[in-house]
Design a protein around this nucleic acid. Structure first.
Lengths: 195, 195
DNA sequence: TATTGTTATACTCTATAACTATA
DNA sequence: TATAGTTATAGAGTATAACAATA
């Protein structure tokens, strides 16, 4: 437990972080904004998956995911195929063009970070990665939509155990009216596929 | 200098941080979104200032700042007065109602962070604050200024407009057309060593 | 002619709700 | 009836451009 003064300062840093995000966003290709890039990256990291799983990893509503995916599919960077076992769902997977796009993104971000973080060493970066990872983990669980945690970051240390509480579906109907607002629906059953 | 794998992971953390931001955003009062809250916080921290100065601190275009400020003024949380010395500019300052609003915001965020970061100690939080602060600083400088980096000792390289290219002003007219895109106009005077 | 703000317009990201096509 | 995904609509945040008032 930290003090209130620290929390206030932390909030200020969170707010100011937006400038970093915007700066990085300007480096992105015109037709591949950060939202789309995040999808490509996750697909490369976790392999083929369904929309709901992707939404869970992104921690956004599945409707948002659907738009990003449609954007990527239009450009031929990913392919959406029906799951023979459940024709409602879609299996997403990267195309060669998508991999090429990832390389381009990687090239740009690496160049940018190498320039901006020229005086950061491995430990510095590793530390930041670890802390941000932990931060996100602590915000993920205990929420309403405990979107499964993306495992341990390769450049950091160990990660806490992840419980599996899915959900992210928008109320939509009636019945289970959720008074509070949370990200919204995402996946749902966190059945087998887990991981 | 860190490795490319670390940079990739760092980018992923940056992207995932959006979930934390959104979660915090849901805790904000309906009529005081995070953008407005940031303005109130900066005014409390730095005291009365002009629009341009505020835009500089927020690291966003002055037009954006103008909107946030108008929103706050409508609610009576801040007051905009003309500067007698330069009637074009506006001096902003918090009203008692604004201070009360800040208290409310502080109450909410503290409560939220205390709950989410219950297992973080002072050092953990301090560490994150320090790293994020440094990160932002390294992204701030050299932003509008292509090359000039703090590493360049004054008098060493040519460092042309090293300091001058401050602003955040949109090209608007002709003349000094800026080919690249940068945050845009903001204040003017280069932030300089600040931070 | 240059600068400070304001306003109009556009784009990205996200959420809510309604809708389709399966299960 | 429940679930997976899509689409329409709305709101927040930000950027660009054009404009008003003042230097």
């Amino acid at each position: 437990m930290a003090g209130q003064a620290q929390y206030a300062e932390l909030m200020r840093q969170f707010s100011a972080f937006g400038a970093v995000k915007r700066e990085l966003g300007r480096m992105m290709p015109a037709d591949c904004p950060s939202g789309s890039a995040a999808v490509l990256t996750l697909l490369q990291l976790h392999g083929d998956m369904r929309m709901s799983k992707l939404a869970e990893l992104l921690a956004v509503d599945i409707s948002v995911t659907s738009r990003h995916v449609a954007h990527l599919a239009e450009r031929g960077w990913i392919q959406r195929s029906r799951d023979p076992a459940d024709k409602r769902s879609r299996i997403l997977h990267l195309t060669p063009a998508g991999l090429a796009q990832i390389d381009e993104l990687s090239r740009r971000t690496t160049e940018m970070l190498a320039r901006r973080l020229s005086d950061w060493n491995d430990d510095d970066v590793g530390h930041l990665i670890r802390l941000m990872s932990r931060l996100r983990a602590d915000f993920d669980d205990g929420r309403c939509t405990p979107a499964a945690r993306p495992a341990t970051p390769p450049g950091a240390g160990p990660s806490p155990a992840a419980s599996s509480a899915p959900a992210t579906r928008t109320p939509a109907q009636a019945s289970t009216r959720t008074p509070a607002r949370a990200p919204t629906r995402t996946s749902t059953r966190t059945p087998e596929i887990t991981t």
